[in-house]
Amino acid sequence: MPGTASFWRDPFLPHVESRRACHSRACYKPHSHPTFSIGAVDAGASVFTGSHGRQSALSAGSLVLVPAGCVHACNPLPDTLWSYQMLHLDAVWLQGKVPQLCMDNASVLHAPVLYAQFCSMNALLFSSAGTHAKNAALLAFLHACANASETTPLPSGMAVIPAQLRPVLQRLQGQPPASLEHLSQLAGMSRYQLIRAFRAATGMTPHAYQLNLSVNRARHRLHAGVALADIACELGFADQSHLQRVFKAHAGTTPGRYRG
């Protein structure tokens, strides 16, 4: 059976986006989101990998809470299928509504009642129910997560960024993409010293970090209805095919399917 993926968004609930994937073989490169993310494993076994390669096994019924900016990847075991759901929440909105969930480290929950509540809530999001009912169910689930006692922190926290690397991060946030030579000059390091120090602080090389930023920017541009070729040019990709390959490696789906 081929894998399927579907996305839910609502302009009246801009603080939340949801995804359902069934019988998937999709694998992700290490990446991060500007959103707070909650994943639920429905079937199959998978491995959560944190920012420094440390891993935790997940199984059907596991919930994973990933803070904004946390580098991670969650992939099925080799040559297996898995099914999962993924919720993305605006970090500023979450801070105002359920600040207890705004953590530094990812965590895993093995709580059948919470998993069932997540499934019910997400099914409601994908349904024709009203906006108020959907938002109420979302908030009820988030408060239940915040009050859960079955939470296990995962070794995926974000390190403090050294002062030498702050100009590099600021430059990477800008456009157009920066060369490694330019970034090493900003940090006052050799290229190899910069790569090692940057990976130790962020979980990514400067190049991977820049690609991840570009994918997250592409998500917003896709939401806005911008043509894929224009997005590729705007974000510094070689061409549309290059953007498609990078996007799928980070998002587990093509830009077209993500746009919906």
Rank of each mutant, 00 (worst) to 15 (best):
C22E: 15
C22D: 14
R25F: 14
C27F: 06
Y28T: 01
K29C: 12
K29G: 12
S32T: 00
S32A: 11
H33P: 03
F36I: 05
S37H: 07
S37N: 12
I38A: 14
I38L: 13
G39K: 02
A40W: 05
V41I: 14
A43V: 03
G44S: 08
A45K: 12
A45V: 15
G50C: 01
S51P: 01
R54Q: 14
Q55R: 11
Q55G: 02
L58F: 11
L58Q: 06
L58M: 14
S59F: 12
A60F: 05
A60L: 04
G61L: 02
G61R: 03
L63F: 06
V66S: 08
V66M: 12
A68C: 13
V71A: 11
H72M: 00
A73T: 12
A73C: 13
C74N: 13
C74I: 14
L77P: 05
L77C: 08
P78L: 10
D79V: 08
D79T: 08
T80C: 11
T80N: 06
W82G: 02
W82L: 06
Y84M: 00
Q85K: 06
Q85V: 05
M86N: 07
H88F: 14
L89R: 03
L89H: 07
D90N: 10
V92Q: 11
W93Y: 14
W93L: 02
W93Q: 06
V98H: 09
P99F: 12
C102A: 09
S107D: 12
V108P: 03
L109N: 00
H110E: 15
H110C: 14
A111R: 03
Y115R: 09
Q117M: 08
Q117T: 02
S120G: 04
M121H: 00
N122Y: 09
N122E: 14
A123D: 15
A123W: 00
L124Y: 00
L124D: 02
L125Y: 04
L125C: 02
S127W: 00
S127N: 00
S128K: 11
S128W: 05
A129E: 10
G130T: 07
H132C: 14
H132R: 11
H132S: 13
K134T: 07
K134A: 05
K134Q: 12
K134F: 04
N135F: 11
N135Q: 13
N135S: 14
A136W: 00
A136G: 03
A136N: 10
A137L: 00
L138K: 00
L139S: 10
L139A: 06
F141C: 12
F141K: 02
F141I: 00
H143I: 13
H143Q: 15
H143T: 13
C145T: 07
C145H: 08
N147K: 11
N147V: 09
S149F: 06
S149I: 06
E150V: 09
T152N: 08
T152D: 09
A159E: 13
I161T: 11
I161K: 07
I161P: 01
I161Q: 04
I161G: 06
Q164R: 10
L165A: 08
R166P: 10
P167F: 06
L169V: 01
L169F: 02
L169Y: 01
Q170T: 10
